[in-house]
Simulated scan of single mutants.
Amino acid sequence: MGYTYSAALRVAALLGVADHLADGPKTVEELARATDTNALKLYRVLRLLATRGVFQENEDGRIALTTAAEHLRSDAPLSLRRAVMMLTHETLWRPAGSIVESLRGNPPFKHIFGMPFFDYWAQDDAPAEDFHVGMSSMSEAENLFLARSYDFPDGATVVDIAGGFGGLLLRVLRQNPTLHGILFDQEHVLAANRLGELGADDRWELASGDFFSACPTADIYMLKYIVHDWPDEKAVQILRNCRNAMAPGGRVLVMDAVMPTGNEPHGGKLMDIVVMSAYEGGRERTEKEFRQLLNEAGLKLNRIIDTGCYVSIVEAVAAD
Rank of each mutant, 00 (worst) to 15 (best):
M1N: 12
A8W: 04
A8L: 00
A8S: 13
V11C: 08
L14G: 13
G16P: 11
P25T: 04
T27S: 15
E30W: 07
T37P: 00
N38K: 02
A39F: 05
L40A: 14
V45W: 02
R47I: 00
L48D: 00
L48N: 00
V54T: 11
F55V: 07
N58M: 15
L65W: 00
L65M: 03
A68Y: 09
H71R: 12
S74I: 12
A76P: 11
V84M: 15
V84D: 11
H89L: 06
P95L: 03
S98Y: 10
E101S: 10
K110W: 05
K110P: 00
F113W: 08
F118R: 12
H132E: 03
V133I: 10
S137R: 02
A141S: 14
E142T: 10
L146W: 00
A147Y: 02
S149Y: 06
Y150K: 06
F152T: 04
D154P: 02
D154F: 08
A156Y: 02
G166W: 02
G167V: 08
V172I: 15
V172M: 09
L173G: 12
T178G: 07
I182Q: 05
V189L: 05
L190D: 00
L190N: 03
E197Q: 10
W204G: 01
P216I: 07
L223T: 09
H228Y: 14
P231R: 01
E233H: 02
V236P: 00
Q237N: 09
R240N: 07
A245G: 09
A247S: 09
G250C: 05
M259F: 08
G262K: 09
E264W: 04
H266W: 08
M271Q: 12
Y279W: 11
R283D: 00
T286E: 04
E287G: 00
K288F: 06
E289I: 11
R291Q: 13
E296G: 03
A297R: 09
R303I: 06
T307M: 04
T307L: 06
G308W: 09
S312Y: 10
S312C: 12
